[in-house]
Design a protein around this nucleic acid. Structure first.
Lengths: 207, 207
DNA sequence: CCTACCGATCGGTAGG
DNA sequence: CCTACCGATCGGTAGG
């Protein structure tokens, strides 16, 4: 399962909007604007202009501006949960699974869906209570994938630190790359993954 | 030099506002509001109410709302640069200096100035171009303290990964603690510091 | 999806 | 530091 086929399968199940449809295009532009200017500084007029419609027409697709933010976050978590699941399944040992997860998350953060991933990290406060509760549920599933792998490494004595703390540290470290990492800067995503793995205190033989 | 005397010395030099004065109290409340609600969602009326004055009176102290954000950030970096300098000087070996830096930054993020530190991380986009340039200058001095210590460890062969990358990872990991770490949760700041150090691939003998 | 428009709220000002 | 107020802009609506 590559990235494209995973996306297509989610679109078929109506869990993620078709990127080429009106809704999908709006969500992609919204993610970009929300990351660049922040949710609050982005006006409904900005959003409408980005997809070439009038501001009033937005409310044919979404009841409120906040609903757009929620949709960006929900679809992003759904897509990335599927991507992480594929990453876990692609590897055999726990150590390789961890590497695959780190690599996949770095790819999401610094690739095509990077805008939406950044929104997920930085625009949390702009969600309503109800939306927040729902997004958090999805987030728990995503996090459990990580905790399972880290927990296995911990039980095997390969990872000394607490899995929960390690995952929190990784979340911060990896999402922060969006503010400084540039793929064209001589450091490839594989190099970056290596550095993170090297920095993690995962002891023991090299494979 | 403890934290209090460092703060007093900065106040005496007019680099940081007296926390008990009108300006200092406003900046502290502003930091709290900006962290909780975000800069854009915080109105000048919120700010004024928090210190018990009318909204129009704010503009006697600051020309614009953005100037308040800038002041929060500038004073926070100044204070923390002094705190990190003291941390570096308090230790002898590079390894101990790194631990002191990590411990001091965790303390800043999760202590009394935590609100302002979170603002520094999450409200970057709301700064004007000019303010951003100025804050960035101060930030460079702060970062250099870290890079000096990490660079020494790298030259000694204790730290395998690139100092620049390590610092970026640490920035993300440590600042992210503000979203999940609670001092009363059974994990002390010293425990947390231990976990971070353990997670860093700083090889070699235990002292 | 558009036109035309609304009530509310925003940052900031003038004059004291 | 207050009173009184402004122009601009915001999210959202009605009716087509």
């Amino acid at each position: 399962m590559n990235q494209d086929s995973i996306l297509r399968s989610l679109v078929a199940d109506n869990l993620v909007s078709d990127p080429s449809g009106a809704r999908g295009r709006l969500l992609r532009e919204a993610a970009r604007l929300f990351r660049d200017k922040g949710y609050e500084r982005t006006t409904v007029r900005d959003l409408a202009a980005a997809v070439g419609i009038q501001s009033g027409s937005l409310f044919h697709h979404f009841r409120t501006k906040e609903e757009i933010l929620k949709a960006v976050m929900v679809e992003t978590i759904r897509l990335n949960t599927a991507l992480m699941q594929a990453a876990v399944e692609s590897a055999d040992s726990s150590r390789e699974k961890l590497r695959a997860l780190i690599r996949a998350e770095l790819e999401s953060i610094n690739g095509q869906t990077g805008e939406a991933m950044a929104v997920l990290v930085f625009e949390w406060r702009s969600l309503s209570e109800e939306s927040r509760a729902y997004v958090l549920e999805l987030r728990d599933i995503y996090e459990q994938l990580w905790l399972d792998v880290l927990g296995a490494l911990h039980r095997d004595g390969v990872l000394a630190a607490d899995p929960f703390v390690v995952r929190r540290m990784l979340t911060g470290a990896l999402s922060w790359t969006v503010t400084w990492y540039r793929p064209d800067g001589g450091l490839t995503l594989d190099d970056l993954t290596d550095q993170v793995v090297a920095m993690m205190g995962v002891k023991g033989p090299g494979t």
